[in-house]
Amino acid sequence: MWYASLQLRYGQRHGRTVPILRQHQGPLRVQKHFVQPDGSCQHIILHPPGGIAGGDVLALDIALEQDADVLITSAGAAKWYNGFGQAAQQTLTVNLARHSRLAWLPLETIVFDGAQVQSQNRFDLQPDAALLWGEVVCFGRPAGNKPFQQGYWRQRTEIWRQQQLLWCEHTRLAASDPLWQSAIGLGGHSVIATLLWTGQIPDACHQEILALPCKGEAGATQLPEVWLARFIGDSAEAAWHWLRAARELLYPHTHQRHADTPRIWRT
């Protein structure tokens, strides 16, 4: 049982975004950052190598100063193991200053049978700040050969712009829940993914994303404050394939450039 925290702060220096604060406690780290030719910064979070067990507490605190442009991903899946009756927690707190832009695209989260996970994500955006948020969650083993028989997954995500709640999601899924099998829930599937952008996407791009082939079921919508896409399927690989393809189509509109694939995704 341990406590791990990671605090990262990014700022714009001479046209390049660089980390100006990197503080960690416990087994939660970042690799060396890359500055891309366009001046944006890519950073890779290293989750605790042994996964996360019952009683563990993780806190991530990310801040972008004005004009900072950052992509954060992770080196491997976040694995939440059987807690044997003890809950594990993660809190992600993100503050985005004016004109800053964060792409938060960690690799998949795997919630193993017996894990009791409480996850809280809060994003606070200043005017003109933007967030691209992607998430892939797998329940049980990646191959889906072991069902989720105990434990729970609870996550609340909120995106705020000043005093206005732009988007929120309240998820509580327990092992005994009828939502695993029901037609309105997972319908027997074990992988879900979400991709969200805090702004408008041109209709032509939206239509292209709707037309993406995928090994699962996917849909998307343009809400007044956010563009939202969802996936349900049976493999993390299929979810990632869909999410990355959608990201590539989005980038010219969200980032005014071609979507660079982080090196870690190619391995």
Binding site: E169, H170, T171, R172, L173, L179, A183, I184, G185, L186, G187, I192, E217, A218, G219, R230, I232
Partner: peptide, 9 residues
Amino acid sequence: NNFAPRFSL
């Protein structure tokens, strides 16, 4: 709790 992924879909 508003988790209902296929209802959302």
